[in-house]
Amino acid sequence: MDILVCIKQVPGTTRVEIDEKTGVLKRSGVDSKMNPYDLYALETGLRIKAKMKGKISVISMGPPQAVEVIKEAYCMGVDEGVLLSDKRFAGADTLSTAYAISQGIKKMGKFDLIICGKQTTDGDTAQVGPEVAESLDIPNAANVRKITEIDDNSITVEMDMGEVVQISKIEFPCLITVDKDIFQPRLPSYRKKIATRNKEVKLYSLKDFEDKDEKKYGLSGSPTQVERIFPPAVNTNKEIWKGSDLELSDRLYKELKKLKFV
């Protein structure tokens, strides 16, 4: 069985502040890490491989330094990894990211099962997975919280739909996006780290794709545009109460009474 997991490198922290004077974003810490949700996707793929045999690959799109997440995946037991990196992919929204990833996947070969994380911590859209599925014209299921069965032709999954759980049997090839807690992700293995130290990460750029039309990638291929960014609004009708804790408590009681909550 051929399994592919989509992983992304994200900033190590999402703490950013806006400089009041200049309106410029200040980002503390430049560390990067694997998108935490993708660790669950990886773990799911590794477990399926252990059961079904076959091969597990990863794909990532990002700047050259994103090879790090692929190496990390190697330390967990992934067989092959591809990084899509090209200046022409810059400024991609989810549509053009997904399109580039689907082109990369086509170039890599055929997969029975593609697994994505639920969402990224930086993009935070949960859109890339289903958009990849559409570009590859294969079925997909989102919010998968459990795999109940798997054989050579299909996978049966539980989709978390809020109030209810839908249990679906999906034929291969298909794409699933997994919820956190589907499995507890393993830690990278030191032994594998040594063993895979020189393992190759394949690099693909636009010239490797079947569709080389620059207009479909990066910013040119992105319908959405960020018009402006700004700090979150502060509520204007607000009061600050100060005083002794006793007074404050009694004042709060009166207020709750006035608001009819007690």
Binding site: I18, P223, T224, Q225, V226, P231
Partner: peptide
């Protein structure tokens, strides 16, 4: 919200 809500982004889709 973008960046985990630290900032807000205004997004448009002007030609699609």
């Amino acid at each position: 919200p973008a960046f985990g809500g630290n900032i807000m982004a205004q997004i448009i889709n002007p030609n699609h």
